[in-house]
Simulated assay, not measured.
Amino acid sequence: MVYAEEDYLMLSGIQHFQFCKRQWGLIHIDQQWEDNEATAHGQVLHKKADNPYVKEKRKNVIISRAIHVSSPNLGLYGILDVVEFHKDAAGVTLKGRRGKWRPAIVEYKRGQPKKDTRDIVQLVAQTICLEETLSCTIDVGYLYYHKVNQKKKIEITPTLRQEVFKLAQEMHAYYEGKQVTKAEYFKNCQLCSLANICLPRLSKKSRNIDNYIALALKDEGSL
């Protein structure tokens, strides 16, 4: 399926969607957001990475920042933190540069490697968008974790690509239906910047709350 440009969704949202569909829905459908220490630190970390005027050339590597990309096949658009272009005869041509260059994305994260794949699917989605923008194939990308100062190489496998296409299709289906899933409480909820908006503990105990309200109204009526 090829999406019209007006139907594109934010590329960064795929990480939220894979982690928690309700979190994604609150942000991208209900337009709700609340910063916490983690999100504030992340914004500071991305300031340099998102500056398109900061470019570096290191021998046979060009480092470009804040590259706008999109994918009609995923229906996603966004801005990449950093793309490294390594001199390679099998690469792509770049305007104003001699030779050919092989691109690889470096996505910056404030924390450390996670047990789930939310960062990985975001990187793969970014890679697919960059491939379609540059008309090329990219086999690897990198996740840089600020807390542990670690640059982790990620192979862009067919399995990961299929997962990303499935997630993107689900995102569009939820968005078209304006569907925000019900809250469920998990141990990671306390780390979410939307915890005070989502209120997963209260939602999980909605039956008890309804009983409490009904009882309170009954007591008031008996006065």
Rank of each mutant, 00 (worst) to 15 (best):
Y175P: 01
E163I: 10
K187M: 13
F186S: 13
K178M: 10
V180T: 05
Q162E: 10
L160D: 01
T157F: 01
V180W: 05
E184R: 14
P158D: 03
L167S: 03
G177L: 15
Q169I: 09
E170Y: 06
F165A: 06
E163F: 03
K166P: 01
Y174V: 05
Y174Q: 05
E176D: 10
K178L: 11
Q179E: 15
F186P: 06
T181S: 12
Y174M: 05
Q162G: 02
Q169V: 09
Y185K: 09
T159N: 09
L160T: 00
R161H: 03
K187I: 14
C189Q: 08
E163Q: 12
K178W: 09
Q169N: 11
H172P: 05
F186C: 11
L160V: 02
A173C: 09
E163Y: 04
M171A: 05
M171Q: 04
Q162M: 03
T159W: 07
G177I: 13
Y174N: 05
P158N: 04
K178R: 12
M171F: 04
Q162I: 06
L160N: 05
Y185G: 00
E163H: 10
Q169Y: 11
Y174E: 04
Y174S: 06
H172I: 05
A173P: 04
A183R: 06
N188Q: 13
L167H: 04
V180F: 06
N188M: 14
L160R: 07
E170S: 10
F186A: 15
T159R: 10
Q162C: 05
R161A: 00
A183L: 03
Q169C: 11
G177E: 14
K182H: 11
Q179L: 12
T181V: 15
Y175D: 01
Y174F: 14
C189V: 07
T181M: 10
Q179D: 15
P158L: 00
Y185L: 10
L160H: 01
Q169E: 15
E163G: 02
P158S: 02
K187P: 13
M171T: 03
R161Y: 01
L167C: 01
T157W: 01
Q162V: 07
E184P: 08
L160E: 03
V180P: 05
Q162N: 09
E176V: 12
K178N: 13
F165C: 04
V164L: 01
E163P: 06
P158R: 05
E163R: 12
T181Y: 08
Q179I: 13
K178I: 06
E163C: 07
L167M: 04
K166F: 09
C189W: 09
T157H: 02
Q179N: 14
Y185V: 09
L160I: 02
C189N: 08
V164G: 01
A168Y: 00
E163W: 07
N188S: 13
T157S: 06
K182G: 11
T181Q: 10
Y174D: 08
L167N: 00
Q162H: 09
H172D: 03
A183W: 00
L167G: 00
G177Q: 14
M171W: 03
L167R: 00
Y175S: 08
K166L: 13
V180L: 06
Q162L: 03
E176R: 14
F186Y: 14
E184H: 15
P158H: 06
G177D: 15
V180I: 15
T159K: 11
N188C: 14
